[in-house]
Amino acid sequence: MIEFKLNGETVSTGEDPNTPLLWVIRDTFKLKGSKFGCGAGLCGACTMHVDGVAVRTCILPVMAVADKNVTTIEGLSDTDDLHPLQRAWVAHSVPQCGYCQSGQIMSAAALLDNNPSPSAAEVESALAGNICRCGCYPRIKQAVLAASDAMPQFQNALSTRQEV
């Protein structure tokens, strides 16, 4: 059995340890927000956080996350509110088909956690691994920059909550 934390809850799985994390999350734990796009770590639709780092989970064996913290789009915001990125995504009507957006948001969230005020070039390079076939790139970039302005407040709310 492989044990890890999934969106804050401890879970365990007896799946083949070589199974990519994406399929364990989707088929065993039934969280469908993370998507399958290429199976080769090339498009970023499957992006989750493993110990806070954005990772392509379609090529990451589940055994690699033993005893680690896995966060999916479903667990992105630990508050009752949406994550500032998600609010910016709605405000800018970012999604078209929407299929890649969980991965885009998870990559962007990892960026903002490490660099709360990125430049446009930093956003581009952080999201270069995420393909959007509908071509929402200009809006994704605008939304990440807009969300970065709201990050301090969000992080304050998070830390206040954790102290309680």
């Binding site: 088929d27 039934k30 969280l31 469908k32 927000g33 993370s34 998507k35 399958f36 999916t72 789009i73 479903e74 949406l82 998600q86 995504w89 709605v90 405000a91 009507s93 970012v94 999604p95 088909c97 929407g98 299929y99 957006q101 969980s102 948001i105």
Partner: peptide, 26 residues
């Protein structure tokens, strides 16, 4: 804004790939 923007920003929009039925095989 688009009517589907929220569902598509929270991972809750349902695509064909997301369908999961009891007893379903792949």
């Amino acid at each position: 804004t688009r009517v589907d923007a929220l569902a598509k920003s929270t991972g809750t929009a349902v695509f064909g790939i997301d369908i999961d039925l009891p007893g379903m095989h792949h």
